[in-house]
Nucleic acid binder design. Sequence first.
DNA 1: ACCTGAACACCGTTCAAGT
DNA 2: ACCTGAACACCGTTCAAGT
Lengths: 200, 200
Amino acid sequence: MSPAAETEAPWARRPKRADGRRNYDAILEAARVAFANRGTGASLEDIAKAAGVAIGTLYGHFPTRETLVEASVREQLDQLDQAATTLTEEDGDALGALTAWVRLAVEHCSTYRGLASFLAGSAHTAGAPLHHTGVIVHKAVAPLLAKAKEAGRIRADVTAEELYAVITAAAWTRENSPEQVDHSVRLLAFVTEGMAPQAG
Amino acid sequence: MSPAAETEAPWARRPKRADGRRNYDAILEAARVAFANRGTGASLEDIAKAAGVAIGTLYGHFPTRETLVEASVREQLDQLDQAATTLTEEDGDALGALTAWVRLAVEHCSTYRGLASFLAGSAHTAGAPLHHTGVIVHKAVAPLLAKAKEAGRIRADVTAEELYAVITAAAWTRENSPEQVDHSVRLLAFVTEGMAPQAG
DNA sequence: ACCTGAACACCGTTCAAGT
DNA sequence: ACCTGAACACCGTTCAAGT
């Protein structure tokens, strides 16, 4: 498998022609603003208008809403992947490293209202644009989880899939929390305690 | 405050005229089927068609989608409320009673795909039709929570609001789980362990 | 290779007219 | 008091024509 095959997805590729790249970038930027303000269900016509392109141009680059959502969080996901590597290499508190990364993952998955639902919806559909996120999360969390288990801080039977369910559930809770209090913090605290070996 | 004011909501009242009641019931039944098959975002026109009424009739009885969703789960909510009373009166395992009721509540809140999001959305909006659900859950869970605390099975600082966040998050997880495995079961198990006094 | 925007489809919501 | 359905608005999606 070539490096390009790993990094380049079949959907939403950045065009080669200069005008195409300009439009692609403008659409992405407008989408990020719209998703941040209105959630992932924001009007695609409004996004095209804000980007200064016709609606057909948007569809040319992003054939489905999901491809646009995926592209709008792709860079952030790369950072999340790298953070897992950094945290795994650090010596010290294995449980702290795991929980720190889980919190980063929850923040990523709650970037926009509606993102958690998109992620959950494509979690079990191989080939879906946002299925990639689940794959990355699984791969990234595996070594962190293994180290925490070796250190005796997490039950041996906790799986990466269960952690992903926890992360998306916490992200959804965060999306839906009132501005004053983020209920996902306490939810994660309870879950973390519950995953400790001494419990139960 | 009269008893009627407590039980009768200002939205979605069952009409007094016979033809009105027939249509009201037919719409509700069609809505339950449509919500079960397509989630709470199901087409209202299709529901009206299935009920054999004009779209205006549907809007006459249920001015917003939320009122229709609320009415479609109201009876079930009453049962959930009664179950809390029964479980509170039982002698025996206080933690078991609490967790049994929480599981019933999770099932209620995941009756239809999309219901958990409706509930979370109206949780902090007094006056919203589905805000009622949150109020009932809070009232119902309070004595169960108090007994579990007295028995030393749950941390003293756990609030009913936190439990409601846990319930809706678990319901959302259940809605989004693949058919083979319900991830909310493990999520609830972890949270329950994490709420125990000996943890942390 | 990429862009445009008209055209079509579908659905939510309102309201004047009716019984 | 309740019902009807046409009318309007808004949005997603496609595609023939253009550069």
